[in-house]
Simulated assay, not measured.
Amino acid sequence: MSFTAFQLPMHASNARNLLGGLVLGALLSACASPPAGGVKVVDRTHGAAGQGSLRQPVTNGQYQVQRGDTLYSIAFRFGWDWKALAARNRIAPPYLIRVGQIIRFDGQPASRPPSVATAPVVVTPPSRPSVPIQSRPIQTQPSASVKTAPSITALPPTQRSASGWLWPSNGAVIGRFSSNGSLNKGIDIAGDLGQPVLAASDGSVVYAGSGLRGYGELVIIKHSDTYVSAYGHNRRLLVQEGQKVKAGQKIAEMGSTGTDRVKLHFEVRRQGKPVDPLQYLPKR
């Protein structure tokens, strides 16, 4: 006996309900099953599109201290607040680190440094020619008219912002801060080769060297437990690590090390995270 196949007519609303149920089931099934290959890898190098989130600190792996490193330069390189990195690795004041020492970012116990490198890191800045002293004719005016801070007078009047910061150099801003950590973490200021670079606020030099790739000859100044500033691409550094500086003091000469043109790259970091320097500098 044969039967004739036939279909019952389906109402439009029933069809939509059935289709919605199938789609929902497929989504739930996909959520319940892990993707092929295991856990999904999330790229944290760049912020989510349109959200302007900053690059997050490295939170896995470890770093072995090299000659010339300081705790501050390592924290700067890997996006950490130096106090937090010191606490994670149980490094107590005065925050000395040693060649071969392991700095961990994941909270695991750090291994002891090799026995052959038990002495603290001694940073010896490369010898630099002294600044030539130009003889000047004897002035007939009273001695009170003599300038006592020639490095500061190389720029227009050093007007401070309400928060106490001043411009680190005189020139047009040719690169602005980007909240996306993969782009510019500071501002770029154009200028001439050898132009003075000034400390933007009082502080202590915690790094002076060329060990951070992409910054050339770099100075990092610690202003407080919260703020540090960085000055990159210099031709010559005029300060050493551990040296205290005043706002407006000449700390370097502008150059093009590590980049393709003469400019100053200037950064401000708050608790290890880059912030827009223009929020702290005086309005022009």
Rank of each mutant, 00 (worst) to 15 (best):
R160E: 01
R236K: 15
S145K: 06
Q249V: 02
V206W: 09
A247V: 13
L218R: 04
R235E: 15
L212Q: 10
I174L: 04
V219P: 00
N234A: 06
Y215G: 04
I152L: 15
P196Y: 07
Q240M: 08
L198T: 04
V206G: 07
Q240L: 02
T148M: 10
Y231F: 15
S169W: 01
I251C: 13
N234Q: 11
V239S: 05
Q159L: 13
G194Y: 04
A149T: 14
Y227M: 10
L155A: 02
S201V: 06
W165H: 03
Q249H: 08
S178I: 05
S163L: 04
R236F: 07
G164V: 14
P156E: 09
K147W: 12
N180G: 02
S210N: 14
R213V: 01
Q240C: 02
K222W: 04
R235D: 15
G248E: 12
G191D: 01
I189A: 12
S151Q: 04
V206L: 03
T226K: 15
P150S: 11
K244E: 12
W165Q: 04
D202V: 12
L193P: 11
A162F: 14
T148Q: 09
E253T: 06
S163P: 01
S135P: 09
L155C: 02
G191V: 03
Y231N: 13
T153P: 00
V245Q: 02
S161H: 13
S229D: 01
S204C: 07
S143L: 08
G242R: 05
I138A: 11
A172H: 13
R236D: 15
W165P: 00
S143D: 06
H233Y: 09
N180K: 05
